[in-house]
Write a protein that binds this DNA or RNA. Structure first.
Length: 595
RNA sequence: GCCCCCGUAGCUCAGUUGGAUAGAGCGACGGUUUCCUAAACCGCAGGCCGCAGGUUCGACUCCUGCCGGGGGUACCA
């Protein structure tokens, strides 16, 4: 309506120019609507339209144009008898609109209270399938914090897409194949404790892995033996296959424990080995399409791109590679899901790898003249992220330089338990709550930073529960729940919103209204951090209301003798509680009712 | 060498289709609780947004070059 008024104002203020540029250009309703933004300082109004472009075109000063437009828009709005837009005023080259806050506030609160945790859900992705591959940890290694980011990011993205109506499929594509297993097998046969199978843990496997790499530095024959062992595994040799199964079982048990602890979910747990019998036909297809050549004994696809090395499908010894299996996997996933989008949440170190894989599929589609609606290369996307660094060096399993995720969580949970004992010793479910908080702290520490940045893993930071942290959000949520318990009356959206028109309350309502947008942003950029940031803003806005003081220095309480005021504030409290709970859910974090 | 990512307050980071005076948290300092959960809130201090050009009415944001850090660069994943 603001846009319409502004566009109308331009039309009547500058009729000649308007006629000249035509109805679809700079002065059109669509253009104006698209240009409208939100003032940085909320006191300047709810909407703002910058007039600089128009002023240039008209050859007049922005302030003069803004003043003129504002004047006409005001009378226009008066004529339209708008309830929503209260006034329009020119400010430094912008035309700003003030809106009827009560109306907006009432609509927002009603939406949150009516919809509950469905607030912010949408049907944008209806009938669309998005695959999200994440975690993809390697068998025979402990679950280190190296896999923390992919797991947490993917788990969150899966929920975000689901929230937006997509059919979101979480895939854990385990690294359960490859020459590394040749190494493991060699190490196990040389130094493993053959007998006590039951007692072996993933840590024993790691010791073997580390020892292998240490000894391989001096004993060059080891790598040859490893290649040979892997070849035997691929050929189906029973003994090596049995060892491989054992490594896999040990690892899966460990992974499952960690996933349960952290509340990580998958729709399909698979692995590279699953693709074994699907590889040959695909290689044959690529060969038949005329894309392959043999170079130094290896079967490759030349990508005709000076920026990218060729993609190896088969090594000189005949074994397949990671890229081969990812190509096969992508084709297989298409057959299985007919997805609209396939995301790979994998560290940015592998960006060339995914370029190669997607490029090969694209070339295959071109060569096979696949109909456009059947093409998938453009639907695949590498959702990359930076390193988790420890101290100043990156993690390396090979050097035995890892922080085991389970240790991190246990430490965080233990600290949470301590804090509970000290701050709220009467709490009933201490174990459960401590787990929520500890896990929340770890997850949020990863999700509050933009994907592509490297994050340094810092114990002090992960174990900090104050400031912009998961526990802060959880604490605020618990506080809201406590208010709801204390209020003891039904909460409804049917309130006098005029009682919520103080500045602090307005910030809260605005944050509530912006929640759906933060979810859209997270989906659009594959970036849960938009939700994290928004939740911090929401919780902060509420906490300011909560601790606001009256002139006499006393706290301006949410629940007071003033029934109407309390009812209005409690509607807001309930709405914030719902948004925090749902927002945390999208991040994969649980919200305790008490802590 | 070539390619990709990052560079914002002492530290960790927001600022994502270019908009008004660049914002938080941590840390430092000073306050707030006869308690609706202080894991909170308030105040104060802290900035050539890596550097230099360019595009634009307007650049932390886009383009080019350079500097610094990280990663990748065919038979690991």
């Amino acid at each position: 309506m603001f846009a319409r008024a502004v566009a109308g104002a331009f039309a009547s203020a500058f009729p000649q120019k308007h006629a000249e540029v035509g109805p679809n250009e700079v002065f059109s309703y669509e253009y104006v609507l698209d240009s409208i933004e939100r003032p940085k300082d909320p006191r300047m109004g709810r909407f703002a339209f910058p007039v600089f472009r128009a002023s240039k075109m008209l050859g007049a000063k922005p302030d003069a144009i803004a003043a003129k437009i504002a004047e006409i828009a005001n009378s226009e709005l008066e004529r339209m008898n708008s309830r929503r837009i209260l006034s329009v005023e020119p400010v430094a080259g912008f035309v700003n609109a003030r809106v009827n806050f009560d109306l907006e506030a009432h609509e927002t609160l009603r939406a949150v209270l009516d919809l509950g945790t469905a607030y912010g859900s949408s049907e944008t992705g209806k009938d669309h399938t998005v695959l999200v591959e994440y975690c993809s940890a390697n068998i025979a290694k402990p679950f280190g914090i190296g896999h923390l980011r992919t797991t947490i990011l993917g788990n969150s993205l899966r929920r975000v897409f689901h929230k937006m109506g997509y059919d979101a499929v979480g895939i854990n594509y385990l690294g359960d194949w490859g020459t590394q297993f040749g190494k493991m097998i060699v190490a196990y046969q040389k130094w493993g404790r053959g007998g006590s199978e039951q007692e072996e843990s993933v840590y024993d496997l790691v010791d073997l892995y580390v020892r292998y790499h240490r000894e391989a530095e001096t004993d060059k024959s080891l790598d040859d033996q490893a290649r040979e062992a892997f070849r035997k595994l691929e050929d189906g040799d029973p003994e090596t296959h049995r060892l491989w199964e054992r490594f896999k079982d040990i690892s899966l048990a460990e992974f499952k424990r960690v996933f349960d602890l952290m509340g990580i979910e998958f729709d399909w747990i698979t692995g590279e080995a699953f693709l074994n019998d699907k590889i040959e036909p695909v290689i044959e297809r690529i060969r038949a399409a005329g894309l392959t050549t043999v170079s130094d004994g290896a079967l490759i696809v030349d990508l005709n791109d000076p920026q990218l090395p060729p993609c190896l499908l088969r090594k000189a010894d005949g074994a397949t590679l990671y890229a081969t299996r990812d190509i096969v996997g992508l084709l297989y996933r298409w057959e299985k899901y007919h997805f609209d989008e396939a995301l790979y949440v994998v560290a940015s170190a592998q960006s060339d790898h995914f370029k190669q894989v997607f490029r090969v599929v694209e070339m295959l589609e071109e060569a096979e003249k696949t109909p456009p609606d059947q093409r998938i290369a453009h639907r695949a996307r590498h959702v990359d992220f930076g390193w988790v660094k420890f101290g100043d060096k990156a993690m390396s399993t090979r050097r035995g330089n890892v922080v085991v995720l389970e240790d991190v969580i246990n430490k965080a949970v233990e600290l949470a338990r301590q804090k509970i004992r000290e701050k709220n010793p009467e709490l009933k479910e201490i174990d459960k709550t401590a787990l929520m908080i500890g896990v929340g702290a770890v997850l949020f520490s990863q999700l509050s930073v933009r994907r592509q940045k490297d994050v340094s893993f810092d114990w002090d930071e992960v174990l900090n529960f104050e400031g912009e942290t998961g526990p802060y959000l959880q604490y605020t949520h618990a506080r809201l729940c406590s208010l709801i318990r204390n209020y003891r009356s039904p909460i409804a959206a049917d309130i006098d919103v005029g009682l919520l028109n103080k500045e602090e309350e307005q910030r809260v309502i605005e944050a509530l209204a912006d929640f759906p947008q933060s979810i859209r942003d997270a989906a659009r950029n594959y970036e849960p951090n938009h939700v994290s940031t928004h939740l911090i803003r929401t919780a902060g806005a509420f906490n300011k209301v909560y601790q606001r003081k009256l002139d006499d220095g006393k706290i301006d309480k949410i629940i007071s003798d003033d029934a109407a005021l309390s009812a209005a504030r409690m509607a807001m409290v309930k709405a914030v509680q719902v948004v925090l709970r749902e927002g945390l859910y999208l991040l994969g974090i649980e919200a305790p009712d008490e802590m």
